[in-house]
């Protein structure tokens, strides 16, 4: 499995964790939503950690840091994390409209972010002369 395949698959896994959470919110079942929120948030944070702790630093060895694409991806991670936190608060406050609105915002923000990674960044990673096997292994070991 390549880095691109693994990470793309992980994006879909996160989506799959989000979908039932949204369904619970839509049905007004806050107990269930709170329950589903935990593994969802964990999966998201783990995905960010795999990138920010393993993949990105390795890539930066080749393309340098600074205000390049990796910087943009990290900024967007911060934006997404902030929505997830607000979403958690809205669920705790049982504010259905707010939670669903944040959910929609989360979804579209995350999806356009994923597109950039899948269309561009992961392709870039595949083309750089790095030890991809080792990176993949290290990423799999990351815990949330």
């Amino acid at each position: 499995m390549s880095i691109k395949e693994y990470m793309t698959h992980d994006h879909r896994e996160c989506d799959n964790l989000y979908a039932p959470l949204e369904e619970a919110l839509n049905g007004g079942d806050f107990e269930k939503a709170l329950e589903l929120f935990v593994p969802f948030k964990e999966a998201m944070l783990r995905h960010f950690a795999m990138e920010e702790e393993v993949l990105f630093p390795k890539m930066e060895e080749f393309i340098g840091s600074g205000e390049g694409p990796i910087y943009v991806m990290k900024m967007e991670h911060a934006q997404i994390k902030s929505i997830i936190d607000q979403l958690g608060e809205a669920i705790e406050k049982r504010d259905q409209q707010k939670a669903l609105g944040l959910g929609e915002t989360f979804m579209i923000m995350t999806q356009q972010h994923n597109m950039k990674e899948e269309q561009i960044l992961y392709n870039m990673a595949e083309q750089l002369p790095m030890d991809k096997e080792a990176i993949l292994q290290q990423m799999k070991e990351v815990k949330a």
Partner: peptide, 10 residues
């Protein structure tokens, strides 16, 4: 190479 994705990509 890889000039597409910059800080102001949008």
């Amino acid at each position: 190479m890889f000039t597409g994705l910059s800080l102001d990509q949008a």
